[in-house]
Amino acid sequence: MNCKIPNGIDMSQQASWCPGCGHGIIVRLLAEAAQELGIDDRMIMVEDVACGEFAQFALKYNTIMGAHGRPIVTAAGIKRVRPDAIVVAHPGDGSAYSIGVESTLHCALRNENILALVVNNSVFGMTGGQMSPTSLVDMKTTSSPHGRSIKKDGSPIDVTKILGQLDIAYLARGSLDSPANVIRTGKMIKKALQKQMNGEGFCLVEVLSPCPTNWNMTPVDALEFIKKKQSVTYPTGEFIDKGGAI
């Protein structure tokens, strides 16, 4: 077994996330996939305003820091003028499914040839763990202290039900709750990048990711929460795979 930190990771800096946060794993998976595909130099990241933006310190790739909720549409903008670049928008679930949901939907409808790599930790992490569009029913957050109520707060959003019938290149959901699922998620990310290289169109990979700090859990308990709760509401797997040449 050869497990080497991929070249895209900037090892001169400490990863900036909280202990046990999934962001660091996701960023590494992206860098592994890019290295395997030989596209490190072509990568352009479009970051969101929130915990994910620390990727700009963790990664060596050229990066645009977008506005909150806009990385997907900003990514589509640069991809249109830089078709040789491999462009990855890196929003959280609050960005992609709440404030930016119109652009998530319409970039999918236009089949923009980008990867939306959505980190789903079911909270607004950077602001301190408020209820997000993917917070689970009964989940206690700092803005749903008695638990998320469907009556009061509305239902959680499952992106596979929103985009599941659209003519896009790829839609998948991975999880970080075990080494096996981390490997599986890495394959999804790599497949999506390959599809962008093929020019197949819009790819969205959502990753169920632990937020121990805002879930008030140890990192290890947070993995259990993903396994027993989060991935029950949000099943993992490949939902759309246009089947272009990989």
């Binding site: 506005a67 549409v73 003028v81």
Partner: peptide
């Protein structure tokens, strides 16, 4: 490139991306 966007917010934020890429947007 011409894109009729979903909103003005999308329009300006798409311009932001294209302009970062060096295009006159």
């Amino acid at each position: 490139q011409f894109i009729q966007t979903e909103s003005e917010l999308a329009g300006i934020n798409m311009v932001f991306g294209a302009a970062c890429g060096g295009a006159r947007a």
